[in-house]
Design a protein around this nucleic acid. Structure first.
Lengths: 110, 110
DNA sequence: TTAATTCATTGCAATATTACAATTAATATA
DNA sequence: TATATTAATTGTAATATTGCAATGAATTAA
């Protein structure tokens, strides 16, 4: 198969898994960390920065943009990228709610 | 290819992506949420709870166990599962550091 | 001992992901 | 206009993931 049966899960569960999936590749983690570090728009030096081929980086950027986590604006022949602050914050809320679930210590039940 | 070039990324970036990847399927999110909700060991009713076939659930459990996020103990013919609190906390630290990066508002640079 | 129960493992088919060469599209520069 | 630059798109090969039927392993119950 290779495709998840999303219809048997809640919207929240599917949303969490979609966000997590996009973080599930180190290149996309690296791209996001770089955008945070620079803290301004990056105009296309990501290929040198990351070390993968240009089409590969372009594809990862597309996935990040598709989920709304980054924005890309054309500037002449190059394209500038930056974090979409609003959507990043919204994503954080969803992920934190999942990650920070309370675990009442339970004497290691089993 | 289908395989990530992990050697070009930092250990931290690879670790983040491994944790994220395991959350990148709604069934694994649902399993973890159920373990948190029950807040004690679950002895094999996950197949009914989630709605996927038994071998499928077993496989997802294996991945969660492999990363250390859950523990499984044999009890007779059944197996009890619960969250591994210590490892979950360690994972949270790694993920929160990534997700909660500071973004200095930047007048939407581009 | 035999049958039932529970869960892991194996094997397989369908689909997804990753990476990149080649190409295209768009703009900028000589 | 012709060439260079930058990045997206297309096509393709290699590998990974998902899901389940069939089977196996271990324990329990009859």
């Amino acid at each position: 198969m290779g495709l998840a049966k999303t219809e048997m899960f809640t919207d929240q569960q599917n949303e969490i898994s979609l966000f997590a999936k996009v973080f599930g590749h180190p290149a996309r983690v690296a791209i996001l960390q770089h955008l945070f570090k620079i803290n301004s728009c990056v105009c296309g030096d990501l290929v040198n920065e990351i070390g993968l081929a240009q089409p590969t980086i372009s594809q990862h950027l597309k996935e990040l943009k598709h989920l709304g986590l980054i924005k890309g604006n054309v500037e002449g022949t190059s394209v500038c990228y930056c974090i979409d602050a609003e959507n990043w914050t919204a994503m954080k809320t969803v992920m934190n709610e999942f990650l920070n679930q309370d675990l009442i210590e339970n004497e290691d039940c089993c």
